[in-house]
Simulated assay, not measured.
Amino acid sequence: MGNSGGLLCIWNKSCFIKQCVIEGSGFIGVSGECGKERKKCNVINVYAPCDRQRKVLLWEEIAGRVLEEGGCWLLAGDFNVVRNVSERKGKMRETQDIQDFNHFVESTKLIDVCLRYRKFTWYRPDGSSMSRLDRFLKSTEMSLLATDWVQEGVARSVSDHCAIILKARNTYWGPKPFRVMDAWQQHPDFRSFVDDKWKDLQVEGWATYKCKQKLKLMKDECKRWNKEVFGNVETRWGILSKEIEALDIKSEEIELDENEVLLRRECFQEMWEILRKREAMWKQKSRNNWIRLGDANTAFFHRCVHTRRAQNQFQVS
């Protein structure tokens, strides 16, 4: 834990059963049983220090656990070091840190999973340098749990790091549910828009079917209104993320000109504004008016939303 946050490990209890916690200076993890076969698995979340001596102690402590216990191991996080000079853009030469880290990976026989879509995962704000500091390392035994392992770099939004995701297979979770935002009701035209559209929609059939179909059509109308009138915050966030991602990828190959550097700065400024709007929307969802606007404790808002949603659910038999 630190002033700006800490390391967090979360898991799905239906897929992973925790047996114990693994802790050390610079890492935290869980050990338990994974999958239908209840195979023993160890997952460690790493945040390596900048100091070389402390890095060496971290590599030695983790290597001791991996070599002593064996089995399935997965290491993930910010290792604060690259494996070779090609994983960094900017002024750099071969350092002892690189040799220490490579020795750690080779001695533990961990596999560095292939990274897709991005070359680097950390970017200096001015774009003058970038590195691949974040990665997944897995043991050979971990490969037996699933096939086609790959890690993907995700758009970094306002952070200087890209999030990385480890995938074993492509999974389709089905269509996203549609819910009316409370913030929409604050718009002066929303209620009249709903009334007019509901009257205009004509559906033939028995009463229950007509109601179901009109609600389905209203969903599309509300989405269109949100995009054209209210302003789709998530859509704009995605557009800005893609613009920043495109500039990041371009800067990995060539230097950006002054206009492109200015454009990226402007995108970040707008994303911060959108981020504040998103926090306000979560506050509305939580229905906790006593919380001051601007509190970024979105985890609390999520819990409140899920609790209220569970209370509002009903079953039809």
Rank of each mutant, 00 (worst) to 15 (best):
residue 130 M to V: 07
residue 130 M to W: 06
residue 130 M to A: 13
residue 131 S to M: 11
residue 132 R to W: 03
residue 134 D to M: 01
residue 134 D to Y: 03
residue 135 R to G: 02
residue 135 R to H: 02
residue 137 L to C: 07
residue 138 K to I: 09
residue 139 S to G: 14
residue 143 S to L: 08
residue 143 S to E: 11
residue 144 L to V: 09
residue 144 L to Y: 10
residue 144 L to S: 11
residue 146 A to M: 13
residue 147 T to P: 13
residue 147 T to E: 15
residue 148 D to Y: 15
residue 148 D to F: 15
residue 149 W to I: 14
residue 150 V to L: 14
residue 153 G to P: 08
residue 153 G to V: 08
residue 155 A to K: 07
residue 155 A to Q: 10
residue 157 S to I: 02
residue 159 S to D: 05
residue 160 D to R: 02
residue 162 C to R: 14
residue 163 A to G: 14
residue 164 I to F: 04
residue 169 R to H: 13
residue 169 R to W: 14
residue 170 N to R: 13
residue 172 Y to L: 07
residue 173 W to R: 08
residue 173 W to D: 00
residue 174 G to C: 01
residue 174 G to F: 01
residue 176 K to Y: 01
residue 176 K to Q: 02
residue 178 F to K: 07
residue 180 V to W: 03
residue 182 D to K: 08
residue 183 A to Y: 09
residue 184 W to C: 00
residue 186 Q to M: 09
residue 186 Q to P: 00
residue 186 Q to G: 12
residue 189 D to F: 09
residue 189 D to S: 13
residue 189 D to T: 14
residue 190 F to G: 05
residue 192 S to G: 12
residue 193 F to C: 05
residue 195 D to R: 12
residue 195 D to T: 15
residue 197 K to I: 09
residue 198 W to F: 06
residue 199 K to P: 00
residue 200 D to Y: 04
residue 202 Q to F: 04
residue 203 V to R: 01
residue 204 E to C: 04
residue 209 Y to K: 08
residue 209 Y to P: 03
residue 209 Y to Q: 10
residue 209 Y to F: 15
residue 211 C to S: 07
residue 213 Q to K: 12
residue 219 K to I: 06
residue 219 K to V: 10
residue 222 C to Q: 14
residue 222 C to Y: 02
residue 223 K to F: 06
residue 223 K to C: 06
residue 224 R to N: 10
residue 225 W to S: 05
residue 226 N to P: 00
residue 227 K to R: 04
residue 231 G to C: 01
residue 231 G to S: 03
residue 232 N to A: 12
residue 232 N to Y: 13
residue 233 V to E: 12
residue 233 V to W: 12
residue 233 V to D: 11
residue 233 V to M: 13
residue 234 E to T: 12
residue 235 T to H: 06
residue 236 R to D: 00
residue 236 R to S: 00
residue 237 W to N: 00
residue 238 G to K: 07
residue 238 G to F: 00
residue 239 I to H: 05
residue 240 L to V: 02
residue 244 I to T: 00
residue 245 E to F: 05
residue 245 E to G: 03
